[in-house]
Structure formats: structure tokens, C-alpha cells
Design a protein around this nucleic acid. Structure first.
Lengths: 336, 336
DNA sequence: TTTATTTACGAAACCGTTTTCGCAAATATT
DNA sequence: AATATTTGCGAAAACGGTTTCGTAAATAAA
């Protein structure tokens, strides 16, 4: 049973296509009686409008694009839930596009968006991204874009972030207060703002507590779990190895724990650990993990809310609306 | 700088719209010289075609729909990655739609798909779904649909599943062999095929080892973590409480562990635990978790591959292609 | 040289909606 | 009763591509 179109529906009703369309949209031009008749027949024949025809004619897609590095990550999947919760309310669909941390993929995705596939974009940039022409091109083509978490600093638009500097500081300070005197920082990118701000916070805490900041204790990790495991293991094998570690993103948690297990280093006795993480399992890890937890769901929700605010206006202006939300340090057994 | 359309591009080139369109599609009707000229100008003017116009005319969306209960779940996010890896290759986009375990949302999503938003669907049904009219309607409207993991048994189409019965059996058998004599089963739905097959495997193992199957040991959990926590806690507080638990889905892991912690029950001494789970953190839980691990990525990949096979043919026939992939029991410290 | 074929392009129809505009009939106003 | 307004609907143009078909010029075959 093929899906019928509005023309066939109109034929069945012996009405014009325009009348049917207006009736379906509850237009005041159409009598109540006719509306009821149309609705009833539409339901009976199982009429579903073609979204592409509507989008083409209406020049709006009713889609928002969500561009993120990865779905298999608690932070991003919670953020998606937040975004989706408000999109659904507005009758919008969420098109999730994954960059897998590749700049080229990210650029291609944004390029495609320029064709009008989405009405607006919520984005967290890839770890490889260190320039922003692709973003500026999209925005200047008339499609509003909001960053969350991983932002391009130099792009003038709304950015929803957390207090990365302060969190980096707090995480490090906490380790210091728990007695660590050699603290490593596991980073994921040289260009990512979140990474660098967290790192700055880390440095700031070290200097504030009169500890020397050794660059050898800042490890640049990659996108491969195996590789990170090796990297971390060799860090923890060095003589004068760190007795505290700040992991700047969630995905480093598992390789870090595994490296400790492999080296028979006890957490927190030999090494204390804080991870930036939204893992639900943080509290049941061995040992339970002290985390910097970001308000992922709320960030997604806020980003989406602001995006829709922009979409509602003809001349959106997203320049002055940036927002910094607080993360929380949740102390558990990996540091106590 | 607004995005230009093909008409403006043709104007700039002093060519007709049709010539430009053909040139962009590398048609043999167009001379090489003209093609080069078109491509060059298109690149210079940053031309990006409107996907909705193409979809409308071509009657295909180049989208596949992925309908799942949740993204914040390792199994599903890995499956998404598998699906996306093949979709990307075929030049398709993946539209992820979440049911949040609601039948009504699921029905609405499929209804919308009937309008042609997607060319095909890969789906894992909600926990509330116990009928299949909505699925049959979509399929009979000409849109191929493939199930993975959570299937509607009665719908005649390709289904990618794992050996749920055997896995339920293996999990239970393993607990028995580790010395458990009172084994509970945490279920999530009365209607879900995966749930019921895993449960049957559980029963089969019990009877095979001459253990009595007490229905009070089968607990129906919900979608709310808090509620599940309470439910599980009261299960473990009963006198004659179980000393072994099979959790039929990943999301029950955390409430289960937390309940044990709250009741000061030692895993595995007091309670042994096996979870159906793709959690990356399974190996670093306290204690590390024995899991039934499904080949999530491969399932997604396989489902997508078969879907594209169907899309390639005019008269797709997805009736004979069902596939059962093996899960693996990964023994860790929660049972040893 | 004449005829047949190929090459390279353009005009126009089409995909399925929405919306503007026009127009009769019904109703309201004078 | 004559005119003005409102109501309810239909015809047709758009939206931006793709594809079919037609055709003039160039080339090949006779």
C-alpha cells in the first residue's frame, strides 16, 4: 500500500490540492466542516506529507544538525538527550553527524549543511580542528551555529562551556591536598580549547602551591585506546613517576585504570586519579572514581534553547549569549 | 554570503541549468571542457546543492533511519558506529530517532518515515512495544526495515540478533558452576523478545541443573534507575536472597552494584553477578564484571549492509536473511 | 557529395508541497 | 434593493534540483 500524496488525497475528497493543504494546516480560510472531512479522510488513507516537498517549498528543513566527535561517550550522549528533549518540543529533528575527531570530516559535514539540510547547528569541534574558516563560512551563509564544550574561540557566536580553567585547577588542587607531589596531566589535543584551559588550570594550581610544572608530566594522548594505554603505562613506569593524574577526558579512564592494574599500582595509594567524566559507572569503579562532572544534559538543553531562540528571529544575533556552566568535583575513592 | 542555487550558477556560466546539472553529475552528454569549467566555477562560488530538491525529484532521501530506545547505552552507541561506518561509505546519512522506550513515540516516528524521510530503517524496538502494525504499515508502504537485537518476531523481515537463549543459558550455567544455588534474573520488559529468550535460557539452565525456578526471583525492572535500585535492593534484602544475579541489560549494572554496596553484600562472595553489557568499563569495575558481550558494532554493520543490499534492488525481499551472531561470556571477578 | 550518426547542449516537465491571488457565492451594511 | 464585505474554495506559481526529449552542429559512413 503505497503512501498517497496530497493530490490523490484531494482527488478522493473532490477538493483542490490547495484546499486540502490549507485544511491540514487548520487555515481560517477553510470551513470547519471541510476541515473535519479532510482530516478524517487523511487519517483513513493514512496520508503522510512528504517532508522534502515541504522543506523545499518552505525553505526550512525542520532539522538541526548536531556535530560531535563521537557518540560512544557519556558526555556527548547525555548532551544529545538534552538537545533532543527541546528539539522534539519544537517539532524538530536532530541530525547527528560524527566527525570521529577528523577535521576533514568536520569540514565536509559543515559544507553539506550549507545546502540547507539543517536550519541550525550545535557543535563540539574535533580534536584536529585548529582553524575556523569552515565554521565562519557556514554561519555567513545564514545558518546559525552554537558551540558547546569544545569551541572555536575565535568564532563570534554563542558558546556553552563549563568552567574548564577552574575545573582543571580544582582537580589538581584536590590531588595536591590529598598529598600528591608529582601530578601528570593527560591531554588529548594541542588545539582544543577545553584541553588547554584545563591544562592552564592545572599549571596554575601547581604554581599556586609552589610545585614545579614539569612538561614531561603532560602527556598528549590520541584517539586510540590501545595507544593511550601504552603511553600511560610508560608514563607510570618512569622513575619519579607521578603519584597523581588528571585525565582531561572520559575516554582516558579505562586505559588509565588498566595501566595501573598492569603495573600493580594501587589507586589511590600509589596513584591518585581525577577524571573529567560523566560515566555513570564512576561510582562503582575499582576504586570509585573521583570526577569532574559536567552538566552534560543541561548543556545540550541550553544550547538547543538558545539555537531555537536564534531561529525564531529573522536576523539572529548569537554574539552576546555565551554561557559558562559550572562543573562539579565529585570526590570518590580514587583520591581518598 | 548566501548559498547560490544551480540557476544562479548556470547564469554565471552562461549555460543552461540542465547542462550544469549534468556536468556536476559527470554525464557523458557533456564535453570534458565544459565539465571542468562547471566544476571550477561551482567550487569558486561555493555551490552546494539543496538536498531536498534532489530528494524530491529523485524520490529518495539518501537517509536511513535508526530507531532505538536510547543513545546513552554502550550497545546502541557501538551499533550506531557500525551502521554509520557503512552508511558513510554509501553516501548516506543516518537519522537517529530515540523512542525512550515509548511505544507511542516509536509509532509516531515510523509513521513520519512513511512520508519518505528515509529510504530504509534499522530498528530496535522499545520495551513497551508488543504489537507490530506500525512496523508492517511502514514496510508495506515500501520502506525496507531491518531489526537488530530487539525484534518483532512476527514481522517478516531480516533480523540481526544474538544467541539470546544460549547466552541466557550460559550466564546462568556459569553462575551455577560457580556455586550459586539461588539465582535471580533482572528483566526489563514482558514483551521484548531478547528479554524473554534470555529468560528462557535462564530457566532452561536451572531445570537442566535440577534447580527450582522460583518466579519471585524474576524481577521486572523499569526505565528509571532510581526505581530499579530500590527494586533490586529489596530483592537482595529478602530472606533467602539470591546469591547469583543475571542482569539482562547493561543499564541495570549500576543500580545492581550500588544495591550491593548499600547492603554491604560482597561481590562475588555474597552475590555473583553476570550482566549483558558492552560497557567499556566492565573490566575496571569493583569488582570487574563478568559480562555477556554482544558484537554490537558488527551487528550494526551487518544490519546496514543488508539494508543497502535491499535498497539496491527494486523489489527488495528481506524475508530470508535473518542472522544470529554469537555473544561471548567474558568471565571476570564478579563471578570468581 | 549525400545521408546517417554522434556529440553537446537547452527547453520544459516533473517531484509534492505551500502560498498567493482571484473569484464566485453568501452574508452584512446602507 | 443595491452595494460592500466576508467566506470558502480553486488555479497556478513557486521551491531547486534531475531527467526526458528535441535539435543544431559536427563527424562518420555511404
Amino acid at each position: 500500500m503505497k503512501n498517497i500524496n496530497i493530490k490523490e488525497l484531494a482527488g478522493e475528497l473532490k477538493l483542490s490540492v490547495s484546499t486540502v493543504s490549507k485544511a491540514l494546516h487548520d487555515s481560517h480560510e477553510i470551513s470547519e466542516k471541510t476541515k473535519r472531512r479532510v482530516l478524517k479522510t487523511a487519517a483513513r488513507l493514512n496520508y503522510v506529507p512528504n517532508p522534502y516537498a515541504s522543506s523545499l517549498r518552505g525553505r526550512k528543513s525542520k532539522n538541526i544538525g548536531v556535530v560531535i566527535p563521537e557518540v560512544a561517550d557519556s558526555f556527548f550522549s547525555l548532551a544529545i538527550n538534552g538537545i533532543e528533549s527541546v528539539a522534539k518540543e519544537k517539532g524538530y529533528h536532530v541530525l547527528i553527524c560524527l566527525t570521529h575527531e577528523s577535521f576533514e570530516k568536520e569540514r565536509n559535514i559543515l559544507k553539506e549543511f550549507q545546502g540547507g539540510r539543517v536550519d541550525g547547528v550545535i557543535m563540539s569541534i574535533s580534536g584536529e580542528t585548529s582553524q575556523s574558516d569552515h565554521v565562519n563560512n557556514l554561519i555567513s551563509s545564514g545558518i546559525p551555529l552554537i558551540f558547546f564544550d569544545r569551541v572555536c574561540e575565535e568564532v563570534e557566536t554563542t558558546k556553552i562551556t563549563t568552567d574548564d580553567f577552574e575545573s582543571g585547577y580544582k582537580a589538581t588542587e584536590h590531588l595536591i591536598q590529598q598529598g600528591c607531589d608529582k601530578i601528570a596531566f593527560l591531554s588529548i589535543s594541542k588545539s582544543l580549547s577545553i584541553n588547554n584551559k584545563r591544562l592552564e588550570g592545572y599549571f596554575k594550581a601547581l604554581t599556586h602551591y609552589n610545585m614545579k610544572a614539569d612538561k614531561k608530566n603532560v602527556i598528549l594522548c590520541s584517539n586510540k585506546a590501545k595507544q593511550n594505554y601504552t603511553l600511560i603505562k610508560s608514563l607510570l613506569q618512569k622513575k619519579g613517576r607521578p603519584n597523581g593524574v588528571v585525565a582531561s577526558v572520559e575516554k582516558l579512564t579505562t586505559p588509565l585504570y588498566k595501566a595501573c592494574v598492569a603495573l600493580k599500582l594501587k589507586i589511590p595509594k600509589d596513584v591518585k586519579i581525577v577524571c573529567f567524566s560523566n560515566l555513570e559507572t564512576a561510582s562503582i569503579l575499582n576504586p570509585s572514581l573521583t570526577t569532574i562532572t559536567q552538566p552534560a544534559f543541561e548543556m545540550g538543553k541550553t544550547a538547543a534553547t538558545l539555537l531555537f531562540k536564534a531561529l525564531a528571529k529573522a536576523n539572529f544575533n548569537l554574539k552576546g549569549e555565551s554561557l559558562v556552566m559550572p562543573s562539579t568535583l565529585v570526590v570518590r575513592n580514587s583520591t581518598t
